[in-house]
Nucleic acid binder design. Sequence first.
DNA 1: CGTCCACGTCTAC
DNA 2: TAGACCTGGACGG
Length: 254
Amino acid sequence: MPEIAEVRITSDYINQLVKGKTFYTARKNPVHKGLELELYDTPFKISSRSRGKELCLYLISKSGTRSLRMTMGMSGHFKWMPEGQLEKHAHLLFNSDGGSLAFVDVRRFGKWCWGDFSENRGPDPIDDYQNFRSNIAANLHKKDFEKPIGEVLMNQRYFNGIGNYLRAEILFKSNQNPFESAVNAIINNDRLLELCRTLSVQAYFLNGGSIKDWQNPFGNESSSNWMKCYGNKSMSYIIDSTGRRLWFDPKWLS
DNA sequence: CGTCCACGTCTAC
DNA sequence: TAGACCTGGACGG
């Protein structure tokens, strides 16, 4: 479930799991066409960070730290696999005592390469909200922002971490016409950018309920109740210019 | 059986 | 701006 909230939860999950563990090897499932992992600094410890839809695994050995930059695609997640357990769709395995940390990805759209977070994706709207805003402000004059806001919300150069369900919820809860130009929407609707952060945070806490042992700050509101627009039968949708289904309030149909 | 659909990028005409 | 990259679940005949 990988938009910003789920990638963040994945990163938390990894950090919780690797606590106190030492890793010895890493291997790639041969069925996956991605980069082979050649590890020459072993053993190593692991820690994780996320930024928007990217996740970096830091492999920390005596001789230094290497960063493995990953994206989760449509179905990527991590899982602890006890020794001997088989998992058809585990594509990266980091071996430790008694089991492995596994990157599991049914559709294999997830990718990895050596390096830290990409330069060409914007700041994280949760962790780095001021820079998230200023990055947009500094580029608002560009042609990118002449496109409809419904589409620009998916541009990872500015909205790193926003995906198809978050854009629908952001548009809906900010009462924003998805077909208005992004410049006008951002200038005239002051809730829009704020909701990029607050809805991402809410999705993180709601979806994280099953993974971590904190109190859900949203009380009784369930995750299914939180989702107001995306996939809702009473809403409208169109296929946008990139081929994705854009969900929106039917009142914007004219 | 078949067709459509999915929380995302990529690269190649 | 099409497609390519993938698997599997839902649903129709």
